[in-house]
Design a protein around this nucleic acid. Sequence first.
DNA 1: ACCCGAATTGAACGTAGCTTCAATGTCAAG
DNA 2: CTTGACATTGAAGCTACGTTCAATTCGGGT
Lengths: 220, 220
Amino acid sequence: MPDPAGGPEEQVRRDIRDVRARWRTRQVLDAAVRLINSGGLHGMSMQALAKEARISVGLIYSYFGGKEDVVVAVVADLAEQIRREVDTRIAGAGDDPVERLAAGFAGYCIAMDAHRNAGLLTYRQSAELGAAARERLKEAERQTFVPLTAVVADAARAGLLADGVSPEMLVFDLTVLAQVWALKHWHFPEGYGVEDFVADQVATLVRPALTPTPPKGNRT
Amino acid sequence: MPDPAGGPEEQVRRDIRDVRARWRTRQVLDAAVRLINSGGLHGMSMQALAKEARISVGLIYSYFGGKEDVVVAVVADLAEQIRREVDTRIAGAGDDPVERLAAGFAGYCIAMDAHRNAGLLTYRQSAELGAAARERLKEAERQTFVPLTAVVADAARAGLLADGVSPEMLVFDLTVLAQVWALKHWHFPEGYGVEDFVADQVATLVRPALTPTPPKGNRT
DNA sequence: ACCCGAATTGAACGTAGCTTCAATGTCAAG
DNA sequence: CTTGACATTGAAGCTACGTTCAATTCGGGT
């Protein structure tokens, strides 16, 4: 009675295929990120991608369903990087919620700064992607909200939020502003970098929102 | 001696051509906005545009140099609308800087809400546009910053800014957040509209930033 | 009616780019 | 060496789309 699983040899073949698939996928994704970061999505044709990854065009389709799948994978990958960076920064920031939030925000900005064009793929017009792809992009983005959401919730529990400040909105603002740094940095003077941006945003958005509103009585 | 200007008849012909050009341009732009708002830039091929505007494809090129010029004109047009809306709202808001800023921000958000996809054309990857077009888009955007910049400057002069708040950054934040409402409104629950967004942003970003930091002595 | 300048048309050209698939290559086992 | 399974290739198929331009239409003047 032949074993449908094929025994140990079959398992080895499967393992080999898995290892190769992971390797190829990585190879393509890295190439995709390089192309997008230097030339935008416009610069990532499948021909260019194949060339950059040093494989044939047809082979890409063995590992990805199509161009859209490559794009989605790039975004999902970047979202994971962002999340890791934010988590790491927050973990290293001590106990003060303001410092933790500032650190998390800095992590987000710096991760975005390192992948300016790739980070902006979620800003594409929705009509250009299928519904499943859009949903995947949205989910990836939601995941990047999680660490900052936890920190802001801590701050709220500690009573640090100014009156009327919505924790959800604060997290939304921080992530959006981190994301658009890449696209809108031209607004700022020559030499103004992401670290400056972070410092100014912390001063303008984070600190005022996390400064408890004094009781009315103190105003007399 | 024939008059090189051609006399009154020639002037009439020039006037007619001007009137027609303005009319055609308006016709094309309106069609472009409709197409973009319903199907994104992807939905605005030149063929589709001609059909929507009820003119021939070739005629578009009498009034615009190419597709890029149509896109730039759409953005510039929208920027003017935003500016007018913001100006109007600020003018009707009374003397309180917080109210004026909130009104201006509301105007920006509502103008963006009315043209969700068109308003996001400035978020395209820069590599897809020529340098002149990019500069035009940037300048159009800078113009939309002007009214809010003036209001924030007034608030700063009146000593209303919390410590450390950068007026420029506050304006940047407000305009960016107004712009991305269109793209990111899916973050919010069903039934959460632009008016809710405005109110929450005013509470989370505007009021804390425009709440003067109390002197240290009051804390004892 | 004819002429002229301007406006308008839309088929066709040319290009870019996504995807496919027949052909070929590689590797391991017998 | 042969065979079979899997991996890989890249020219070509196919589609979309921006732009052009020869042909036609329109309107006004004589």
